[in-house]
Amino acid sequence: MSTHIEFSDVSVHYGQKRAVDRFSFKIAEHSVFAFVGPANSGKTTMLKCINRTIEFIDAAKVTGQVLLKGQDVKAIRDVYSLRRRIGMVFPLPVGLPLTVYENVAYAPRRMGVRNKAELDEIVERCLRDSVLWDEVKDRLDMLGTKLSGGQQQRLTLARALSLSPEILCLDEFSIAIDPVTTMKIEDVLMQLKEKMTIILVTNLTQQARRMADHVAFLNDSELVEWGENEAMFNRPKKEITGRYLNGEFG
């Protein structure tokens, strides 16, 4: 399998503070890559480097290269097309102050899709994929901000899927969602793997174990180690990795 994303010696500083320290790793196409690690270990910052939303933070300074299919993301001139290739779901559920329908149709509309039938199809598919369709199909004209926290989180996922991204980044997507729904979403994600590469940032080591092909362990802004799922859980090279993955420290 070919490499989809590669981090090569990437560091991020917020002023004097270091948030990401020399990350280097490769993520293969159509795989699930999980990042685990305690809070403040640079996970979210790393994701923001991939779609370059890090540039909206004035104080952030990025060094090193993020390569998308071998191309440096900084060299991509149309940054919006880059962001459309990458679906992002952050931990805080954010329903935009639009109807449920318009929430999902937001990005396709910005891209110029105006055909009603086409939009209907996208909205239904994405809401089904995020296991929200059955709950909202009768009230698509309700404000997305009025949904419950867990529903808004799945709405965020549906929005991320609306552009059929080639990479889907999920940052602790399940913290606001009940376990049963989480399992259903995990099933869907395993199917979506056929179409896209999935990057999973999670606190739940068991989730990483269930889903990931590769696992990386982050601690204190450093990439401690990364490798195949089975090897990371059973034969970690560093002691701290084993302790964290087996729930002995955190």
């Binding site: 919006y80 097309s81 459309r84 290739r85 910005r110 891209m111």
Partner: peptide, 15 residues
């Protein structure tokens, strides 16, 4: 990525 270049063009045509 032929797919994304098509999308970009559509986008720019929005008034």
């Amino acid at each position: 990525m032929p797919d994304s270049t098509r999308k970009t063009r559509v986008n720019k045509s929005l008034l």
